[in-house]
Protein backbone atom coordinates (compact mmCIF):
# COMPACT_ATOMS: atom_id res chain seq x y z
CA UNK A 1 0.00 0.00 0.00
CA UNK A 2 2.81 2.35 0.99
CA UNK A 3 4.68 1.52 -2.22
CA UNK A 4 1.55 2.26 -4.26
CA UNK A 5 1.11 5.60 -2.50
CA UNK A 6 4.77 6.48 -3.11
CA UNK A 7 4.46 5.51 -6.77
CA UNK A 8 1.34 7.66 -7.15
CA UNK A 9 3.05 10.54 -5.37
CA UNK A 10 5.98 10.31 -7.75
CA UNK A 11 3.64 10.20 -10.74
CA UNK A 12 1.37 13.04 -9.66
CA UNK A 13 3.40 15.96 -11.03
CA UNK A 14 3.66 14.20 -14.38
CA UNK A 15 -0.04 13.35 -14.39
CA UNK A 16 -1.00 16.86 -13.38
CA UNK A 17 1.30 18.73 -15.68
CA UNK A 18 2.22 16.40 -18.49
CA UNK A 19 -1.19 15.87 -19.99
CA UNK A 20 -2.36 19.34 -20.82
CA UNK A 21 0.54 21.72 -20.33
CA UNK A 22 2.54 23.38 -23.03
CA UNK A 23 6.21 23.06 -22.05
CA UNK A 24 6.53 26.76 -22.85
CA UNK A 25 4.39 27.47 -19.80
CA UNK A 26 6.52 25.57 -17.35
CA UNK A 27 9.76 26.03 -15.45
CA UNK A 28 12.01 23.52 -13.78
CA UNK A 29 12.24 19.77 -13.59
CA UNK A 30 8.98 17.87 -14.21
CA UNK A 31 10.28 15.17 -11.85
CA UNK A 32 10.58 17.62 -8.94
CA UNK A 33 8.81 16.39 -5.79
CA UNK A 34 6.52 19.41 -5.59
CA UNK A 35 4.24 20.91 -8.21
CA UNK A 36 3.41 24.63 -8.24
CA UNK A 37 0.55 25.72 -10.50
CA UNK A 38 0.33 29.51 -10.59
CA UNK A 39 -3.15 30.74 -11.51
CA UNK A 40 -3.00 34.35 -12.70
CA UNK A 41 -5.06 36.95 -14.46
CA UNK A 42 -3.02 39.40 -16.54
CA UNK A 43 -5.34 42.28 -15.49
CA UNK A 44 -5.05 41.56 -11.77
CA UNK A 45 -2.82 44.04 -9.87
CA UNK A 46 -1.92 41.48 -7.19
CA UNK A 47 -0.80 39.09 -9.97
CA UNK A 48 1.43 41.85 -11.35
CA UNK A 49 2.96 42.38 -7.90
CA UNK A 50 3.58 38.66 -7.48
CA UNK A 51 5.01 38.32 -10.99
CA UNK A 52 7.36 41.26 -10.64
CA UNK A 53 8.42 40.98 -7.01
CA UNK A 54 7.94 37.52 -5.51
CA UNK A 55 7.99 35.04 -8.37
CA UNK A 56 11.72 35.49 -8.97
CA UNK A 57 12.41 34.47 -5.36
CA UNK A 58 10.07 31.47 -5.58
CA UNK A 59 11.82 30.33 -8.76
CA UNK A 60 15.24 30.84 -7.20
CA UNK A 61 14.36 29.04 -3.95
CA UNK A 62 12.32 26.11 -5.24
CA UNK A 63 12.33 25.76 -9.03
CA UNK A 64 16.02 26.25 -9.80
CA UNK A 65 16.92 24.02 -6.85
CA UNK A 66 14.85 21.16 -8.28
CA UNK A 67 12.36 21.15 -5.40
CA UNK A 68 9.37 22.27 -7.43
CA UNK A 69 8.08 22.20 -10.99
CA UNK A 70 6.28 25.42 -11.90
CA UNK A 71 3.33 25.52 -14.29
CA UNK A 72 1.67 28.77 -15.32
CA UNK A 73 -2.13 28.58 -15.53
CA UNK A 74 -4.49 31.16 -17.00
CA UNK A 75 -7.36 32.30 -14.84
CA UNK A 76 -8.92 35.37 -16.53
CA UNK A 77 -11.64 36.63 -14.19
CA UNK A 78 -15.03 37.09 -15.78
CA UNK A 79 -15.67 40.59 -14.44
CA UNK A 80 -16.24 43.89 -16.31
CA UNK A 81 -12.95 45.45 -15.14
CA UNK A 82 -11.03 42.50 -16.61
CA UNK A 83 -12.64 42.53 -20.06
CA UNK A 84 -9.24 42.19 -21.81
CA UNK A 85 -7.93 39.41 -19.57
CA UNK A 86 -9.03 36.55 -21.78
CA UNK A 87 -7.54 37.94 -25.02
CA UNK A 88 -4.34 38.60 -23.07
CA UNK A 89 -4.33 35.01 -21.83
CA UNK A 90 -4.89 33.74 -25.39
CA UNK A 91 -1.92 35.77 -26.68
CA UNK A 92 0.25 34.48 -23.84
CA UNK A 93 -0.70 30.85 -24.53
CA UNK A 94 -0.13 31.43 -28.26
CA UNK A 95 3.28 32.90 -27.45
CA UNK A 96 4.04 29.82 -25.34
CA UNK A 97 3.69 27.74 -28.52
CA UNK A 98 6.69 29.55 -29.98
CA UNK A 99 8.62 29.60 -26.70
CA UNK A 100 7.86 33.22 -25.84
CA UNK A 101 5.49 32.85 -22.88
CA UNK A 102 7.76 34.53 -20.34
CA UNK A 103 8.61 37.40 -22.68
CA UNK A 104 4.96 38.09 -23.41
CA UNK A 105 3.74 37.68 -19.84
CA UNK A 106 6.51 40.02 -18.62
CA UNK A 107 5.32 42.63 -21.15
CA UNK A 108 1.66 42.15 -20.26
CA UNK A 109 2.29 42.61 -16.55
CA UNK A 110 4.73 45.50 -17.11
CA UNK A 111 2.16 47.43 -19.16
CA UNK A 112 -0.93 46.18 -17.35
CA UNK A 113 -2.19 49.61 -16.34
CA UNK A 114 -2.25 50.77 -19.97
CA UNK A 115 -3.73 47.86 -21.98
CA UNK A 116 -6.22 46.83 -19.29
CA UNK A 117 -7.79 50.27 -19.76
CA UNK A 118 -7.25 51.10 -23.45
CA UNK A 119 -7.57 47.52 -24.69
CA UNK A 120 -4.33 47.62 -26.72
CA UNK A 121 -3.40 44.07 -25.79
CA UNK A 122 -2.01 43.10 -29.16
CA UNK A 123 0.15 46.23 -29.38
CA UNK A 124 1.66 45.31 -26.01
CA UNK A 125 2.34 41.74 -27.10
CA UNK A 126 3.63 42.72 -30.55
CA UNK A 127 6.10 45.13 -28.98
CA UNK A 128 8.24 42.28 -27.66
CA UNK A 129 8.06 40.00 -30.70
CA UNK A 130 9.83 40.01 -34.07
CA UNK A 131 7.60 40.51 -37.17
CA UNK A 132 7.83 36.79 -37.91
CA UNK A 133 6.83 35.88 -34.34
CA UNK A 134 4.00 38.39 -34.48
CA UNK A 135 2.50 36.66 -37.51
CA UNK A 136 2.67 33.26 -35.84
CA UNK A 137 1.23 34.46 -32.52
CA UNK A 138 -1.64 36.28 -34.24
CA UNK A 139 -2.64 33.10 -36.03
CA UNK A 140 -2.14 30.90 -32.97
CA UNK A 141 -4.19 33.22 -30.73
CA UNK A 142 -7.25 32.38 -32.85
CA UNK A 143 -6.49 28.67 -32.94
CA UNK A 144 -9.30 26.72 -31.22
CA UNK A 145 -6.68 24.56 -29.50
CA UNK A 146 -5.13 27.63 -27.87
CA UNK A 147 -8.52 29.00 -26.81
CA UNK A 148 -9.39 25.57 -25.44
CA UNK A 149 -6.16 25.54 -23.44
CA UNK A 150 -7.13 28.81 -21.78
CA UNK A 151 -10.56 27.43 -20.98
CA UNK A 152 -9.04 24.21 -19.65
CA UNK A 153 -6.95 26.21 -17.18
CA UNK A 154 -10.04 28.16 -16.10
CA UNK A 155 -12.04 24.95 -15.65
CA UNK A 156 -9.19 23.44 -13.68
CA UNK A 157 -9.13 26.47 -11.38
CA UNK A 158 -12.90 26.37 -10.94
CA UNK A 159 -12.70 22.69 -10.05
CA UNK A 160 -10.08 23.48 -7.44
CA UNK A 161 -12.47 26.13 -6.06
CA UNK A 162 -9.99 28.99 -6.40
CA UNK A 163 -11.22 31.97 -4.46
CA UNK A 164 -8.76 34.61 -5.68
CA UNK A 165 -5.89 35.43 -7.99
CA UNK A 166 -3.02 34.97 -7.82
CA UNK A 167 -3.21 31.52 -6.31
CA UNK A 168 -0.39 29.04 -6.24
CA UNK A 169 -1.74 25.51 -6.13
CA UNK A 170 0.81 23.44 -4.26
CA UNK A 171 0.72 19.70 -4.89
CA UNK A 172 2.89 17.50 -2.72
CA UNK A 173 2.53 13.83 -1.84
CA UNK A 174 -0.93 13.54 -3.43
CA UNK A 175 -2.27 16.57 -1.55
CA UNK A 176 -3.25 19.88 -3.12
CA UNK A 177 -3.28 23.12 -1.20
CA UNK A 178 -3.99 26.56 -2.64
CA UNK A 179 -1.79 29.41 -1.34
CA UNK A 180 -2.74 33.02 -1.98
CA UNK A 181 -0.98 34.94 0.80
CA UNK A 182 2.16 36.47 -0.67
CA UNK A 183 2.38 39.63 1.44
CA UNK A 184 4.95 38.03 3.70
CA UNK A 185 7.28 35.75 1.76
CA UNK A 186 8.73 34.21 4.93
CA UNK A 187 5.29 32.73 5.66
CA UNK A 188 5.17 31.03 2.26
CA UNK A 189 8.75 29.84 2.55
CA UNK A 190 8.10 28.47 6.04
CA UNK A 191 5.05 26.60 4.80
CA UNK A 192 6.79 25.05 1.79
CA UNK A 193 9.88 24.12 3.81
CA UNK A 194 7.68 22.51 6.46
CA UNK A 195 5.89 20.49 3.76
CA UNK A 196 9.16 19.38 2.19
CA UNK A 197 10.36 18.13 5.60
CA UNK A 198 7.23 15.98 6.04
Amino acid sequence: MKILALALAALLPCLAAGLDVDKGKTMGDPAAPMLFELYSDFSCPACKTLHENVLRTIVQDYVRTGKAYLVFREFPLNIPAHVYSRPAAAFAVAAARIGKYQTVSDALFRNQQAWSVNGKVWETVAGVLTPEEQKRVQVLAKDPAVLAEVQRDVDRGMQAVLTQTPTLMVTYKLRQQPWAQFGDYSLFRGYIDALLKK
Binding site: Q177, W179, A180, Q181, G183, D184, L187, F188, G190, Y191, A194, L195
Partner: peptide
Protein backbone atom coordinates in the same frame (compact mmCIF):
# COMPACT_ATOMS: atom_id res chain seq x y z
CA UNK B 1 -0.75 21.24 9.25
CA UNK B 2 2.23 23.62 9.18
CA UNK B 3 1.18 26.65 11.28
CA UNK B 4 1.87 29.01 8.35
CA UNK B 5 -1.24 27.70 6.60
CA UNK B 6 -3.53 28.83 9.44
CA UNK B 7 -1.63 32.14 9.70
CA UNK B 8 -2.30 32.75 6.00
CA UNK B 9 -5.97 31.92 6.57
CA UNK B 10 -6.19 34.44 9.42
CA UNK B 11 -4.38 37.08 7.35
CA UNK B 12 -6.92 36.60 4.54
CA UNK B 13 -9.60 38.11 6.79
CA UNK B 14 -7.57 41.37 6.80
CA UNK B 15 -8.51 42.14 10.39
CA UNK B 16 -5.22 41.73 12.25
CA UNK B 17 -1.63 42.55 11.22
CA UNK B 18 0.62 39.72 10.07
CA UNK B 19 2.51 39.48 13.38
CA UNK B 20 -0.81 38.96 15.18
CA UNK B 21 -1.91 36.39 12.59
CA UNK B 22 1.32 34.47 13.23
Amino acid sequence: EPWQLFAAGIADYEVVPMWAAK
